[in-house]
Computed example of a mutant assay.
Amino acid sequence: MAVPKKKTSYSRQRMRRSHDHIKIHPVGTCKQCSESCFPHHMCLKCGYYNGRKVIITKAERRSLKRNTKES
């Protein structure tokens, strides 16, 4: 098994770990509901992506269930 001959200096250790920091994710706004969401992702609040409806949200699903029970 390989064993290091010398102790790594603090400078070299910190230079190696310079890329391990936490990155801040960019945040955009939804064009439909103006909520904050990640760019190139669908909006979790309204279910739109790039100007078209992609999924049915939980709130819409609940209202559909209520409408079917009433009628």
Score class of each variant (00 low, 15 high):
M1I: 01
M1Q: 04
V3H: 08
K5Q: 11
K5T: 12
K5C: 01
K6H: 05
K6F: 03
K7Y: 00
K7R: 04
K7M: 00
T8G: 00
T8A: 01
T8R: 07
S9G: 06
S11L: 14
S11F: 14
R12A: 14
R12D: 11
R12S: 09
Q13C: 03
R14Q: 04
R14Y: 01
R14T: 02
R14L: 03
M15L: 11
R16V: 06
R16W: 06
R17P: 00
R17E: 07
S18H: 12
S18F: 04
S18M: 11
S18C: 13
H19F: 01
H19T: 05
D20I: 02
D20W: 08
D20E: 13
D20K: 12
D20A: 12
D20V: 04
D20R: 11
H21G: 10
H21P: 00
H21D: 02
I22D: 15
K23C: 04
H25E: 14
H25P: 08
H25L: 15
P26F: 09
P26Y: 13
V27A: 02
V27Y: 02
G28W: 04
C30K: 12
K31W: 10
Q32F: 06
Q32Y: 08
Q32N: 12
C33D: 05
C33M: 03
C33K: 09
C33P: 08
C33F: 03
S34W: 08
S34H: 13
S34T: 14
S36H: 11
C37Y: 09
C37Q: 14
C37P: 01
F38I: 03
F38P: 01
F38C: 02
P39W: 03
P39T: 01
P39R: 05
P39K: 06
H41R: 01
H41D: 00
M42C: 05
M42P: 05
M42Q: 08
M42Y: 11
M42A: 06
M42F: 13
M42D: 05
C43S: 06
C43G: 04
C43D: 05
L44M: 11
L44T: 12
G47C: 11
G47E: 11
G47P: 10
G47Q: 09
G47T: 09
Y48T: 04
Y48G: 07
Y48D: 12
Y48W: 14
Y48Q: 12
Y49T: 07
Y49Q: 11
N50W: 06
G51T: 09
G51W: 07
R52I: 13
R52F: 14
R52H: 15
R52A: 14
K53V: 01
K53N: 05
V54M: 14
I55F: 02
I56E: 14
T57G: 02
K58M: 03
K58A: 09
E60L: 05
R61Y: 14
R62W: 01
R62C: 02
R62I: 06
S63R: 15
L64A: 15
L64P: 04
L64Q: 14
K65Q: 07
K65R: 12
R66Q: 13
R66A: 15
N67E: 13
T68Q: 15
T68C: 08
T68H: 13
T68N: 11
K69H: 04
S71N: 13
S71L: 08
